[in-house]
Every structure is written in C-alpha cells, then in structure tokens.
C-alpha cells in the first residue's frame, strides 16, 4: 500500500500544487488518460471546497490523503468548512446548460462521473469526501 498526504490552504493559488502532487503520487498506477481524469476530478472537488465551502477564506485548510494498492486509487479530502454534502447537488441538464450559456456548476457532476464518491460529515465540524478510482470505471462519457 502506497500512501501520501498533502495539506493546502483554502486558496485557488494552491490548486496547481495539488495537481503536481497527484501526478507524482499516481505515477505508473494509472495510464495518462486516467491520471488526467483523476486530477480533474480532485481539482474540481477542491476548487468547490475553496470557493463554496470556505468562501475563499484562505485561513481554512484542506487535507488530501492519497492511497494506492496498485489496483485502485483512493483519495480522502478533508475540510473544516460548514457541513455540505455535494452529492445532494442534482446533475445539470447538459442541453439546457449549454443552450443558456451558463458558466459554472459542472464540477460536482464531472467528479461523480469519473470517481466513486462518498461523503462523511465530521460531527465535530467539517467534511470528508472519499473518492475512489476503481479499475473498472473507465471509458466514461457524459
């Protein structure tokens, strides 16, 4: 089992650091296409936490725990923002989304399509998002 952890401040300027850490951690455990999708999924989740959870208050922190057993990759994203379960956000109607020229609101939908995602409320404050990339979740399309 390979493990790593990264703590960032709730600031979008740290997103590139997350993407670099994920690239380094995943290494050869996934092909380049899968790696790109995993990075996209986690980047979207963390961007949402920064913007909507912490409302860009960069005194907040986000912890990204990474685990790989060679066949599946697991990422646990912990924050201390107000409770919010993103899995309760309804998926957008894509035709309507594009026809109305909307900007924003795709992030949750995209990471739910790429990863198996579960949510845990931390009773003492904050949230945990558990994202797993199983070996069989490939070739997804919206």
């Amino acid at each position: 089992m390979k493990k790593s952890s990264l703590t960032i401040k709730a600031d979008t300027s740290d997103l590139h650091m997350v993407r670099k850490a994920l690239t380094d951690f995943i290494g050869s455990d996934a092909d380049s296409n899968e790696t790109g999708r995993i990075i996209l999924a986690i980047d979207e989740a963390i961007a949402n936490i920064i913007i909507h959870g912490y409302k860009r208050d960069n005194s907040g922190k986000i912890i990204i725990d990474m685990e790989s057993d060679g066949s599946s990759l697991k990422f646990i994203i912990t924050d201390y923002a107000p409770w919010f379960n993103p899995l309760e956000v309804p998926s957008p109607d894509m035709d309507s989304y594009f026809d109305t020229g909307k900007n924003g609101g795709l992030g949750v939908d995209i990471y739910k399509k790429i990863m198996d995602v579960s949510y845990e409320k931390n009773e003492t404050g904050g949230n945990r998002l558990i994202m797993v990339k199983p070996a069989d979740k490939k070739n997804i399309r919206i």
Partner: peptide, 17 residues
C-alpha cells in the same frame, strides 16, 4: 496543459455571447 470546468464554463459563456 490543463483546463478545468472553470475554463469550460467561460468557453460556454463565450459561445453564447
């Protein structure tokens, strides 16, 4: 090198504009 939904949203807004 990379585009997230933030960029796609802007392209969509541009398309409609």
């Amino acid at each position: 090198n990379y585009i997230s939904s933030a960029g796609i949203g802007l392209l969509n807004a541009a398309l409609n504009s």
